[in-house]
């Protein structure tokens, strides 16, 4: 280290508030994506779980395509939901352990927005891959053609809501050493509407009726949770860290 000289220092003022918030948002997303890229195990976990559950069902029930096709929408959605639930616990855990979560709370940036950046990364690395992988698994369950696009769309929309709502539970349990079960109990009731309309959209696509209503409701759920959840996540993080 070199010795600093004693001179009055001018303390740099930040840029325009909006520009500085955007900068901090991008930096937080970039940092989290980079950290996940270096250690892809966590994101891979839920994808592997999703694939395993779906491959086991035809073996366990029956390879009969007609039977599988009727249960496929619900099955795909339940498995994707549980896979997303599995990944929630790690959303804030690393940051809590290494002290960067504490520093995030101490930054002069709006915490709800910063939390939303972390949620966005979580969705990009779990929800979106789950949605993109679902058609392949749909083939295994002989999901009728014509419903694949709706399956991807409903999962992409629905899993975003799951990430946003799940983050509240993850933030509340981040300080607990074994918060996994509590986390599931906290967020599962809130996941039920997403499951109903998500699986409903795929069933409607198979039946040939309009899927617009289901997708619109999924979008509405996402919009509502995006409006309210960031503040709940920020408050939960404050409670978890500082009692």
């Amino acid at each position: 280290m070199s010795r600093p000289e004693a001179s009055p220092k001018s303390y740099a003022r930040g840029r325009e508030p909006e520009a500085s918030v955007a900068l901090a948002l991008l930096a937080t997303m970039r940092r989290d994506l980079l950290a996940l890229l270096r250690r892809p195990g966590a994101a891979f976990n839920s994808l592997a779980f999703f694939a395993l559950v779906i491959t086991l069902f035809p073996i366990g029930i029956s390879p009969d395509p007609e039977l599988l096709a009727t249960i496929a929408p619900g099955l795909l959605w339940v498995a994707a939901l549980l896979a997303a639930l599995l990944s929630l616990d790690g959303m804030f855990r690393d940051d809590f352990a290494d002290g960067t979560l504490e520093q995030l709370l101490l930054a002069a940036q709006p915490l709800p927005l910063m939390a939303l950046a972390k949620v966005a990364v979580h969705w990009l690395t779990t929800g979106l891959p789950l949605a993109l992988m679902a058609p392949v698994l749909g083939v295994m369950l002989s999901l009728p053609p014509g419903s694949y696009a709706v399956l991807v769309l409903s999962l992409a929309l629905g899993s975003a809501t799951l990430s946003v709502i799940g983050a509240i539970g993850a933030a509340l349990t981040v300080g607990l050493s074994r918060g996994g079960v509590l986390l599931s109990l906290l967020v599962l009731p809130l996941y039920v509407p997403v499951l109903i309309f998500g699986a409903g959209a795929v069933q409607a696509a198979i039946a040939g009726t309009s899927v617009a209503a289901h997708l619109a409701l999924l979008g509405a759920l996402l919009a509502v949770s995006l409006v309210f959840a960031p503040w709940a996540i920020a408050a939960s993080l404050r409670i978890s860290l500082n009692g």
Partner: peptide, 14 residues
């Protein structure tokens, strides 16, 4: 404010 706590606040993967 600049606060340094018990944990260094350094991400191991980066």
């Amino acid at each position: 404010l600049l606060y340094l706590g018990h944990a260094p606040g350094v991400k191991a993967a980066l």
